[in-house]
Write a protein that binds this DNA or RNA. Sequence first.
DNA 1: TTGTAGGCGTTATCAC
DNA 2: GTGATAACGCCTACAA
Lengths: 346, 346
Amino acid sequence: MPDHAVTLRDVARRAGVHPATASRALNPETRLLVSEGTARRIAEAAAALGYRPNAVARSLRTRRSHTIGVLIPDLNNPLFPPMVRGLEDRLAADGYVALIGNTDGRAERERQVFEQMRARHVDGFAVATAHRSSPLLAQAAAEGLNVVLMNRVADGTGFPSVSPDNELGARLAVGHLIAAGHHRVAHLAGPQCLSTGQSRYQGFQAAMADAGLAVPAGCVVFARAFSIAEGRRLGAQLLAAAPGLTAIAAANDMLAVGCYEALEEAGLSCPGDVSVVGFNDMPFIDRLRPPLTTVAFPHYQLGTEAAAMLLARMSDRLPGPAPAVRLAPELVVRGSVAAPPRPSRP
Amino acid sequence: MPDHAVTLRDVARRAGVHPATASRALNPETRLLVSEGTARRIAEAAAALGYRPNAVARSLRTRRSHTIGVLIPDLNNPLFPPMVRGLEDRLAADGYVALIGNTDGRAERERQVFEQMRARHVDGFAVATAHRSSPLLAQAAAEGLNVVLMNRVADGTGFPSVSPDNELGARLAVGHLIAAGHHRVAHLAGPQCLSTGQSRYQGFQAAMADAGLAVPAGCVVFARAFSIAEGRRLGAQLLAAAPGLTAIAAANDMLAVGCYEALEEAGLSCPGDVSVVGFNDMPFIDRLRPPLTTVAFPHYQLGTEAAAMLLARMSDRLPGPAPAVRLAPELVVRGSVAAPPRPSRP
DNA sequence: TTGTAGGCGTTATCAC
DNA sequence: GTGATAACGCCTACAA
């Protein structure tokens, strides 16, 4: 890779000025410090030589890399591409770029990726892999790093966050099931070490309690991960252990897709035999059979908001307590919910 | 963001040695140059102080950023996440990280992102946005940049590439339609300015010719982009302009999904009335209604191969002509192809 | 085996 | 308004 090799010194020489002056003229922040005429001469020289500022040298001097580390579980989960694009688009508007790190939900990978990013001197982090209790984030907080939490929140780190209102979303979903006539509703819960898993579980319980419905033993199972495989495994378990069950509220769309598989395997139809709702409204979920009824929130916007918050935090200092932005969830009714097969008895 | 502030000088001081020696001891490449004992002392000092090498300073000095620029059309297209992960995983093994840039298929965005990446002194590029004729890539070639092409290839740039065998893949897909009894097969072609669009079109023509089948006017339409919207628009156009058509070979899965929409809108069923095949076997396409019969190739592996090639090119120099790796396509038979509704007449 | 010195390209802080 | 100078943290001839 041939280095373009034309440096500020070359530009300065051609324009007959000192490198420092060239630097001032070419830097938007300081352009005002140099006279109109020389500034133009310098700009012309730069253009003629094809000058390209060396971002690395600038970073070394200014101690800002204009780089953000992004931690996500897995880019292959359709939930994340829109979030990441929102983040990147907003960051790009301020001249920042994102370094994406996939952790696959493994703490050791997360630490590794995090260290790698610190070594590269990222100016801040956008973290979508937070566990409710996270030593890594605690350390980051102690060291005063710039962090914004996306989608998930963590206890007591004091970091700003952007996430959907998970409890409300879950209430919406479960309420919809109940309104359709379901009494025996199961919950395929997410990992309780994740705020999303916990809040949605709370939303489920609250909705059931509000309706005066019991939650029999065996009607709540906890996934070890938000994955299709876990959804399938626990969906099957639910079907086996909770007879009479007519609806499943899955803690996210991946788990719901797993339920689809379990239902099909058991020879049951959705929504004919069992209704299913999900959470996230991830891309393409509307094209499954049946189209999944789920809870939506604006993924792209979650990314842009997170980026904006991080940027604000890094520049303005944005003092005061860290904001915890909650995006409004919205129930999207599609084809995976119907009335229970037979009217259930009171 | 508090700079960790512990530098090589600090480590050296604590170990009672000169910074240069500390540098040598801590750098895997040169560790052998320093005696066992001092090396250990230095390592201990580094650990005790929590030393973290400054990648920026190192980059400035060594003129290698250990960073790769990745150009893709859009992360939201499910084809790309696995490719990007393959790329990142392979790059990470060699200590490189990827900077992802989305171009949305716009040349001006592509140039902008490209320049942005050059300013950050990336060591190489992995490009999945290539047009068959690309001034940008021509320039990159002229300047001797390190580039590897992914998925798409470009004419006469001399860059190495990894892509599926598109012509063969298209032949497989169209052959499958013909074997199912279809005579009037339409092609929803991709943009001919992209190698994927062109090669798949050629594969379609070859398969039809081999079977001695005519391709009536109106039975081939060209999309302006590989998008669902274009698939829908042109799918509808095909249905209107080519009566008697019983099958559509779409140039990729996104276009095929658009066809599904057009079919549904026209009150036609797939595969009952019209069969459809796609190309790419992108994630989740097996869960649509009906599950799409399509052409698969290993997306993740495409990413790892591209990364490996780029890495080799950047280090070993890997002389000789640029390799053009073609990944074997494989027909995946699912539910979107059936025999034509009525036996067509010869 | 270890120390010395200089510089990667830029910007911040002084002078003038 | 512009020039001089030093330093950001690291690496690498070269010297010892």
